[in-house]
Write a protein that binds this DNA or RNA. Structure first.
Length: 362
DNA sequence: CATGCGTGGAG
DNA sequence: TCTCCAAGCAT
């Protein structure tokens, strides 16, 4: 069920019958008994804590928990530049922290400022993106570096709208950079925060399939008024979703706001829809990925024939290209699919023609 | 607004 | 093995 205006403004009491006892539950113990089970249909309406004090309590509980458990990530370091934070946010789009860490370190040593990256060929950004996935992000990060150099005097803009204007920066990333790099009070909404709100406030197992406007308004209404606290709240709720309120098998025993969770109170109702998994085997994406692995490791243009024919001697250094070429040949895509993949990569600017072959954009 | 876009670890 | 999914964005 989607959140709409009507739901936002009504049904508070019905949705949160334990509202009056929540503050007490906080003070007594983390092991307070869960509230009585409420029919999912009733709880499915989002309800803000009725009293301002309850909201403040929630802020305190989550941020205090965050202080004790927050991961020591390099882009959270006090001396991390806005550029470093922007790079981390783009790398973290749809990619787990553990895989981002080494690549982010490499990028920061290689290109400590936007101007450093901007002076490189875009293909170098793609090459050093490694296997993070969605290599278009590397291309856009390079384009963002150029825009920062040329249009923002080399400094990452602090303004939300200016950030939003950068390639590869959408509403989430713009809000996150404004908050985490510049300490601004912005409404950050990512998949973790959406899931926490869905459970804690709306009593749903999962957020809706598309981000609705009412969801942003809900996040707005939950955001602490105090600027510094709002930054901490954004980071804390995100961390809560990443470490405790996870998509699968949430660790509710470790949750700092367990006593006031609408989803737990409702008896953990299952999702009302089943997310359709992304197809992978046999898709163009799989072929594109295999082609990109070849281009990243190749130091000179690769002729089109090399992608589709047997892995005979094609004149490449065996150590560099043998493995990715082998992977592509193992896939053995139909000629038309291979062409479609190559043309798509060309259209996306991830590859370019040169000397009768394909290479990363120079 | 639904779809396409990579990758590899966990359950 | 196989399915799910991880700090989204652009079209």
């Amino acid at each position: 069920m989607l959140i709409d205006d009507r739901d936002l403004n009504s049904g508070r009491d019905a949705a949160r019958p334990n509202s009056a006892s929540r503050s007490r539950a906080k003070q007594s113990a983390a092991s307070a008994a869960p509230a009585a089970v409420i029919p999912p249909a009733v709880v499915a309406s989002p309800a803000l804590p009725a009293e301002p004090g309850e909201l403040a309590t929630m802020h305190r509980d989550v941020t205090s928990w965050f202080s004790g458990i927050a991961r020591d990530l390099p882009w959270r370091s006090a001396d991390c530049s806005a550029w470093g934070i922007l790079v981390s946010e783009v790398m973290l789009q749809q990619t787990p922290v553990v895989r981002v860490l080494p690549v982010w370190q490499d990028w920061m040593e290689r290109w400590p400022t936007p101007a450093d990256l901007a002076s490189e060929a875009p293909g170098e950004a793609v090459r050093h993106w490694g296997r993070l996935g969605y290599p278009r992000r590397a291309l856009r990060l390079h384009a963002a570096a150029v825009a920062i150099r040329d249009e923002h005097n080399g400094e990452v803009p602090a303004d939300f709208d200016h950030l939003l204007g950068l390639p590869g920066v959408g509403s989430y990333t713009a809000a996150a950079v404004a908050a985490f790099a510049f300490g601004q009070r912005t409404t950050v909404v990512d998949t973790n925060i959406r899931r926490v709100h869905a459970r804690l406030i709306s009593g749903l197992a999962l957020p809706s399939q598309s981000l609705a406007a009412a969801e942003m308004r809900l996040a707005d209404s939950l955001l602490p008024q105090d600027q510094e606290l709002s930054v901490r709240w954004n980071a804390a709720v995100m961390e809560l979703g990443a470490l405790v309120c996870t998509a699968r098998a949430p660790k509710c025993q470790e949750c700092p706001v367990r006593p006031s969770c609408a989803w737990l109170a409702a008896g953990e109702p299952p999702p009302t829809y089943t997310p359709k998994g992304q197809a992978w085997h046999g898709t163009d994406r799989q072929v594109r990925g295999a082609v990109m692995a070849v281009l990243r490791s190749a130091s000179s243009p690769v002729i089109r024939e090399a992608f589709g024919t047997s892995p005979a001697d094609l004149g490449f250094a065996p150590d560099g290209v043998a493995i990715p070429l082998a992977a592509l040949h193992r896939l053995n895509p139909a000629p038309e699919q291979l062409e479609r993949a190559l043309d798509g990569l060309l259209a996306d600017g991830l590859a370019e023609e040169h000397d009768g072959g394909l290479r990363l954009p120079a």
